[in-house]
Design a protein around this nucleic acid. Structure first.
Lengths: 188, 188
DNA sequence: AAACTTACTTACTCATAAGTAAGTAAACAA
DNA sequence: TTGTTTACTTACTTATGAGTAAGTAAGTTT
């Protein structure tokens, strides 16, 4: 991993831990043993770095979707939960939760990067909900779109509130999300 | 409303709009036509101001709970949604979402203030879910506690993601939350 | 009326953080 | 071997923001 990737990785962790506005170039440069100006060599400025972090996250999601494409709806959902679990253990929240809660305190370009990522996640989850219902794996009332919305928000704010109340909360949320889409014997 | 209350109100709006770390004393003093030092007269510093804002929000919740105590579960839930609606129209998020997403970028004392508020909200919503199920107004599987967790997270992150995708999302989430606790004819 | 309190303002200090201009050492290319 | 690009560092500027010490004007109390 070269310096550029290390900077991107460090910036990502910091955004998920303290937020975009609360980290400084020094928070990145000191652990990496480089100088602040080295970050400016790789990225125009903090705004460009922030955008690059979001775009990379979006790309990773894209690749991940291809990897899980062939799996059944329950396994897909479980694997999706796992992404959030990896943040939970480090007291980090998700990218969407971090940037959207600081939305009017980040540059416009970052808002745009986040927008296309959120649209993408929502579409994917909506399709998963639709697919799961059509194949009889899931059962729920209402539109797949609004069900997907309840699922993402549960996970996003689940990470946030788990920092306050403890990680058990997140386990409860995952369990409840599943219960709320589990078919009962009456559903035919 | 005296200067102290105006400062508290302005600080609250700013925390819900841009977050604790992104607002400055000038953002408060200029609109109020006072000087930065006047804020320091009323509050020790930014940390004390932040705590005062959270505590006042917690007190308001306390009073609100008493006002709605006698209402039926569905009306209570609808009134609870209304609190979030009032933030939605101004592109503001909720206090819990704002502070918890910046949790490691705010002073420890503010984390403690938030903790007691979150515990209180969770307990109230859990009791509402339990009461609603016991009286046959609501139906859901799983514990009232985890159902309450899904509801708060839906609302908290619902406001956040609605800033990115638009206010229709929040309407969908409210509808879906209700659908997910609405009894069907088979539930006896 | 003298002393004290309230509610500020003026004028500043101190710290931090982003950003930049100029320099350098090593690798690579012509 | 000379020139050029890569990947930085050094040293600096500029801005902003929290915080503070000292002063003041308008009441309030004794």
């Amino acid at each position: 991993m070269d310096t550029r990737d290390k900077i991107l990785a460090a910036a990502k962790q910091l955004i998920l831990k303290v937020g975009y506005n609360a980290f400084s170039f020094t928070d990145i440069s000191v652990p990496l043993g480089i100088k602040n100006a080295a970050i400016h060599y790789h990225f125009h400025g903090k705004e460009a770095l922030g955008c690059a972090v979001i775009r990379k996250e979006h790309e990773n999601l894209f690749k991940w979707r291809e990897e899980v494409a062939a799996l059944d709806p329950w396994t897909k959902l479980d694997k999706f939960f796992t992404i959030y679990d990896s943040n939970l253990v480090h007291n980090r929240i998700c990218m969407v939760g971090s940037i959207s809660s600081d939305l009017y305190a980040v540059p416009k370009s970052m808002r745009e990067c986040l927008h296309s990522m959120v649209v993408d996640i929502s579409q994917w989850l909506t399709e998963l909900m639709e697919e799961g219902r059509n194949t009889g794996f899931f059962h729920f009332n209402g539109s797949a779109e609004s069900k997907a919305a309840v699922v993402v928000t549960g996970l996003a704010a689940g990470l946030q509130i788990s920092r306050v109340l403890g990680p058990e909360l997140f386990e409860q949320i995952k369990t409840q999300i599943k219960l709320d889409i589990t078919p009962t014997k009456d559903d035919n």
